[in-house]
Design a protein around this nucleic acid. Structure first.
Lengths: 140, 140
DNA sequence: TACTTGACAAGAACGTTTCTTAGATAATAT
DNA sequence: ATATTATCTAAGAAACGTTCTTGTCAAGTA
C-alpha cells in the first residue's frame, strides 16, 4: 500500500494525503478521524471528500471497511486477511494475523456461498486492564 | 426467552409486545424494524421507547446487540454464543451454531484479556445466488 | 395522601453518512 | 491550441440512525 499511485483512479493531492495518512496506520480510523487529522494540511477539504475518497479506495480494494463500531464506519488499510482484538472499553482495535480453520459443512451453509470471514475477539486491552477506571480516556 | 417476565424490570405492555416480537425471531431486526412491526398494535409508541427497551433488554442480557450492519444496530434475541452468515447483497443474517476452536497465544494477545469472540461469514445467500440481479429485493 | 421512581410520547438534538450543485481540473479528441 | 468530456472537489443540504430532554402519567411506598 506504500505505493501512492494507481492507474484506475485519478490521484489528487487530497487522495494522496489520505493514502499517506492511512499507510501503515493500524488505528482503524473513521472518516471523521481522517478528516481532523488532515485539517491542518488541507483546511478546506470537506468531510464529503473523505467519504468519497474512502468509497473510491474501497472499490479499488486499497482499504477495507469495518463495521466494528456501531454507528461508525472505520477503515483498515491492511487488506490482507486478518482478525481483530477489540477493547470494549476504549474501542481500540488491534490486528492479529492468525489463520484459523473455519470449516463449514454444506448442511450448515445451506446453499449460502461463502466468500470470506471475519473473526473479532472482544475484551479488555492491556491499558484498560491495568489502569484505574477513572483514568481511562476513551479515544472515540 | 419465551418466558415474558422479569423481576429486574417493570413489564409494560410495550415491553411485553417487543419481547414477544423478538421471541424466536431470527431476522435480527433493527430498532426501526421492531418499531414498524408494532405500529399497528401500538400506534402511539415512539421509536425512543424501542431504543430504551432494547437498551434495557441488552443490560438484562435478554438480547445481544449486533454491529453487523454498518450504520445500523441490529438485535439478536438468541443470547447463546453462535455465529453468523451474512449475505452481502440482501443483508440477510443466518445463524450458525458451530463452535470453532480459536486458540490465541499470550504473545498474540499481548496482555489483552479476551472475553468473547464473534465469527461472521459473508457471502451470497441462496436466494440472491439463484435469483437474477434485477429481481432481488434488498430488505434493508 | 404525599412522595418517589420508572416508563412513556414527543420532539429536539446530535453524529454519521449520502446527495446535490456548481466550479475546477485533467485527459482526450479535434 | 481549442473544444469536449469525464472526473474530482467543496460546500451545504438532506437523510438516517440514535440519543437526549421535557413534561406527563402510572405504580409502588411511606
Amino acid at each position: 500500500m506504500s505505493d501512492v499511485s494507481n492507474k484506475n483512479m485519478k490521484m489528487t493531492p487530497q487522495r494522496i494525503a489520505i493514502m499517506k495518512y492511512l499507510d501503515g496506520n493500524t488505528a482503524h480510523p473513521s472518516a471523521a478521524d481522517i478528516y481532523v487529522a488532515l485539517q491542518e494540511q488541507f483546511p478546506t477539504m470537506s468531510l464529503a471528500t473523505v467519504y468519497n475518497t474512502m468509497e473510491t479506495l474501497k472499490q479499488q480494494r486499497v482499504v477495507v471497511e469495518l463495521s466494528i463500531d456501531p454507528g461508525k464506519k472505520r477503515f483498515d488499510p491492511n487488506t490482507q486477511p486478518h482478525h481483530h482484538l477489540i477493547c470494549i472499553k476504549c474501542k481500540t482495535v488491534l490486528d492479529i494475523f492468525v489463520d484459523f480453520p473455519l470449516p463449514l459443512s454444506d448442511r450448515e451453509t445451506g446453499g449460502f456461498q461463502i466468500l470470506g470471514n471475519r473473526v473479532d475477539f472482544y475484551g479488555i486491552c492491556k491499558t484498560c486492564g491495568d489502569t484505574p477506571r477513572e483514568m481511562i480516556q476513551t479515544n472515540r
